[in-house]
Every structure is written in C-alpha cells, then in structure tokens.
C-alpha cells in the first residue's frame, strides 16, 4: 500500500520543515555559544541567495551528479513517507549519497576529493546500523513496510532500546554534526575547506542544501518510527533527540575517520546486534 498523498506532502512540506529545523538549530547553537545568532529564517535566506548567484562549475558533469543527488534524496524520502519498503528506502538513500560523492570526485579538486573519501567512510560507518535498525523493526512488527510499522500498536522503543541508541550514534554522522562531521561541516572547520561541497557553488550548492533539508526530515521521520505507537511521545522524542544532537554538536570537536568508523561500528553495531540477538532469541521462544 503506497500512500501517494503522503509522498506529495513530503515533497512539498519537507523543505520548509527542514529549513526551519536548520534555522532553529543555528539559533540554538548561537545561544549555546553566548551569541544572538542569525534570524530564524536564515537558512531560507541563504538558499535564496545561492539561487540568485551566478553558476560556476569546474566541470559541467557536476550538474548531473548533484541533480541526481537531490532527486534521489527526494525519492527515498517520498518513498519513506509513502509507507514503502524500508530497505528499498535505505538503498535509494545510499544511491543518492553516492551521487553526492561522485559529484565531488568529478571536479578533480584536492579538497573535495578528500571530502569525498571521507564521505564514503561516513557512509560505511552509518549504513550497517541503519540496516540493522530496519531489521530490528522487522523483528518486532514482522514487516519492512513503513506503513505497517507505523500502524503497529507495539511500542518499538521498548523492544529496541539498543538499536535506538545505535541509531542515535549514526544519526550524528548523518546530520553532519560534530564530532562526526568529517566530510563537510556547518562549523568553521576549514582544514579541508568545505570538503565534499567545496566545488559546488551558487544554485548547485543551494540544491545540496535543499537535499540536506529533505534528508533531515527523513531522518527525523525515522526516529518517529521508534515511537510510532503514540504520536505525542514521538514528537517529544524527536525534539529531545534533536536538542541532544545540537548539544553534542557544540560539545565535541571533529573526530578522526578511524575513530568515527571504529566507534560507530563497534558501539553501534554491538548495541544493535546484542539487542537484535535478544529479540531474535525471544521471538524464537515466545512469538512477539
């Protein structure tokens, strides 16, 4: 059962929500640093400005990759909100990121090249945990389809606490928050300039930014799934998680790739796997 209306709603609303969330994020970050911070709508101003700028490229093929990145992020998000197969959503999501990486590679620029390699490390750091999260949800609800997981009356979070913690860990990577903002950063880290996004400018950078908004909304939706049995709790959880991410973001400095990979594989993998193992064992003994 694919809910087309939801997909459409996502496509239309997600940029606004995503941009707003980014605005709140920046405001809060500024407050945590004792600053006033930019206006709430600053992210929209930024994208608006980028769209007005002249387009410069290193190679025209960048256009193709970045457009594909945006399109497939939207596709995977839309598929998620339409209630599609979670694994397919994850694979489409990976596909989108590969396009971002390829766009960075295509420019033959040292900084975006390093950014691309780091982005790849990030992908392999977070992807297993996201797949394990999907598997965890399957073990509880017996379905990979988002609409069925949403419809489940079981409090997933109680079955999947370890998986949830592991997911939070990789969420930091996905939201491009310190300490795991290896490939590009919203902060003033400049040792690899802007990493993957170094060679994208003007309207193209705006596309990357918008894709990031879509992506964030999708990720917040993923958190929702853990609490889907009760919408108020879910919304509260999303808010708390996001605040936590902002706090973490402002508390840590950038980690090395090795630390990122190891910690996310070991900690997240262990928590996720132990949780799944218990669940698996229990479901073999007493069907959930």
């Amino acid at each position: 059962m694919i809910l087309l209306e939801n997909a459409l709603l996502f496509i239309i609303l997600a940029p606004f929500i995503g941009g707003l969330v980014a605005g709140i994020d920046r405001k809060l970050t500024a407050r945590m640093q004792g600053r006033v911070g930019p206006p709430l709508l600053q992210p929209f101003y930024d994208v608006g400005k980028l769209l007005q700028k002249e387009q410069i490229v290193v190679t025209p093929s960048q256009h193709f990759y970045i457009l594909s990145y945006l399109v497939f992020i939207v596709v995977s998000g839309a598929l998620f909100f339409a209630g599609g197969d979670l694994l397919l959503v994850i694979f489409a999501f990976t596909l989108a990121h590969i396009f971002l990486v390829l766009g960075a590679y295509s420019s033959y620029s040292p900084y975006s090249f390093i950014g691309a390699e780091r982005e790849l490390i990030q992908i392999i750091a977070y992807e297993p945990m996201i797949i394990l999260s999907a598997v965890g949800m399957y073990l509880v609800t017996k379905s990979f389809f988002v609409w069925e997981i949403m419809g489940s009356s079981l409090p997933l979070i109680l079955y999947l606490p370890g998986v949830f913690l592991g997911f939070l860990m990789v969420l930091t990577i996905k939201l491009r928050k310190s300490p795991f903002d290896l490939s590009t950063s919203h902060h003033a880290h400049q040792e690899i300039v802007k990493g993957v996004t170094t060679e994208f400018s003007g309207p193209m950078l705006a596309r990357v930014e918008i894709a990031h908004w879509y992506e964030n909304v999708f990720l917040l939706g993923f958190i929702y799934l853990f609490f889907a049995w009760s919408p108020p709790v879910a919304i509260l959880a999303i808010i708390i998680v996001y605040l936590l991410e902002i706090l973490v973001d402002n508390t840590f400095s950038r980690a090395t790739w090795k630390f990122t990979l190891k910690s996310s594989w070991i900690i997240a993998g262990m928590m996720g796997l132990v949780n799944l193992g218990v669940l698996y064992y229990l479901s073999a003994v007493v069907p959930v």
Binding site: S61, I98, L102, I123, I124
Partner: peptide, 16 residues
C-alpha cells in the same frame, strides 16, 4: 559500497 564508489570516483573525475 566503499571500494566500488572510490573506483567509480577515480574514473569519473574530470582530469584536465
């Protein structure tokens, strides 16, 4: 994903 994409990246980088 890692080893295929970095190979892909190599072949598509537009070397001047």
């Amino acid at each position: 994903v890692l080893f295929w994409s970095k190979w892909m990246g190599k072949i598509i980088s537009v070397c001047p």
